[in-house]
């Protein structure tokens, strides 16, 4: 599995963990806040946690990936020095036009899911659901959109991508 595929899996994992944690909180009647302000605060906290968790997961992933490449290099050639290992790590992490193209394609999926969620959230208001429901639909579909984006990105790396 390539660096990009592993990075995408790390991103999907962090997104899924955040969504799962939020759902556990939001759908627990014992702990759920009552008013709109409290919900907004909760969501802001979860967004902050999400950003922090994503950064930490990516850092840990980079460290583990680099260690993995170094170990693999040492097993293949015990005489290789640190410069060779460093060069190999850099080569594995190169991003080019294919990565950018796949990222753009998967972004479209993410935006489509988030857009659909926005419409559903507006419909919930039209059908007289509380603004709390609307806020939750927005948060959950945006998070879900980010996961879908990651899954589609992973699929494109596995299946290949053609301009046709």
């Amino acid at each position: 599995m390539s660096y990009q595929e592993k990075k995408t899996l790390a991103s999907i994992t962090s997104g899924a963990l955040l969504l799962a944690a939020y759902c556990l909180y939001a759908f627990n009647p014992a702990r759920t806040p009552a008013d709109l302000k409290a919900w907004a605060t909760t969501m802001l906290v979860f967004i902050a946690i999400g950003i922090g968790a994503t950064i930490i997961i990516q850092i840990v992933f980079h460290i583990l990936f680099s260690i993995g490449v170094a170990i693999q290099q040492k097993i293949q050639n015990n005489d290789c020095d640190d410069k060779d290992i460093e060069k190999n790590i850099k080569l594995e992490m190169v991003e080019d036009e294919r990565d950018r193209m796949i990222e753009m394609k998967s972004n479209q999926v993410g935006f489509a899911v988030a857009g659909f969620g926005f419409v559903v959230a507006l419909l919930s208001l039209v059908f007289n659901y509380s603004p709390v429901v609307m806020l939750n639909i927005l948060f959950i579909t945006f998070s879900f959109g980010s996961i879908c984006e990651g899954i589609y990105q992973f699929l494109l790396y596995r299946r290949g991508y053609s301009h046709a």
């Binding site: 080569l91 190169v94 080019d96 294919r98 290949g160």
Partner: peptide, 8 residues
Amino acid sequence: ASRQTIIA
């Protein structure tokens, strides 16, 4: 390019 792109 990256090695992965050449492989693909």
